Amino acid sequence: MDGKARIKAHVATYLGLTVLFCLPPYYWCIHTGNLGGGYKPVGFSLILMWGPALAALATCRLRSIPLDALGWNWRPTKYQWIAYGVPILYSGAAYIGIWLTGKGGFYNREFVANVAKGFGWSLPDGLVIVLFTLLAGTFGMARSLSSALGEEIGWRGFLTPQLAKFNSYTATSLWMGLIWSLYHYPILLFSNYNLGGPKWFSLTCFSVMVFAMCFVLTWLRMKSGSLWTGAILHASHNLFIQQIFTPLTVDTGHTNYYIDEFGLGLPIVTVVVAIYFWRKRHELPETAQ
Rank of each mutant, 00 (worst) to 15 (best):
A274D: 12
H234W: 01
L220W: 02
L15C: 04
E286A: 07
H31N: 06
A55Y: 05
L54P: 03
I7G: 11
S236F: 04
F158T: 06
L264E: 02
L46M: 07
W278S: 14
P41G: 07
N194Q: 10
E110P: 07
A235N: 15
Y258E: 11
W72K: 03
G3I: 10
I47Y: 04
L182M: 07
S168D: 15
Q162N: 10
A142G: 06
L220M: 01
P267W: 01
P285R: 04
F166D: 02
F211V: 02
F262N: 05
V86C: 06
I98P: 03
G105Q: 12
I65M: 00
G92A: 13
N192G: 00
L227H: 10
L203Q: 07
G150F: 00
Y39W: 03
Y258M: 13
L227S: 01
L203P: 02
F158Q: 04
Q289G: 11
A148W: 04
V250L: 11
G92E: 12
L48F: 13
F166K: 01
P285T: 05
G92N: 00
N194M: 00
S226W: 14
W219N: 07
T18V: 13
A136P: 06
L163E: 00
K223R: 08
K280A: 01
F245P: 00
T18S: 14
K78F: 10
F277K: 01
T204W: 08
A9G: 08
R143W: 14
T13H: 00
C214R: 12
F21K: 02
P76W: 13
F44C: 11
S146A: 13
I275P: 03
W155Y: 06
Y183K: 02
T255C: 13
F158M: 11
I65E: 05
L159F: 11
G177I: 09
D68M: 10
L100I: 06
A142F: 08
A12Q: 01
A116N: 03
V269P: 04
C29M: 15
W180C: 03
P161E: 14
Q162K: 15
Q243P: 13
A5H: 13
F245W: 00
Q80W: 10
I47P: 00
N238M: 10
P24S: 04
V128K: 04
Y26F: 01
L35G: 03
C22D: 12
M209V: 06
V272Y: 07
I65P: 10
V130R: 05
G154R: 05
L89E: 09
L248D: 01
V11K: 05
P186V: 08
L195E: 15
T255P: 14
G43E: 14
E283V: 10
Y258R: 08
I88W: 15
L100F: 12
T249Q: 07
V216P: 05
S168K: 05
R279T: 06
G97M: 04
G51Q: 02
A288C: 15
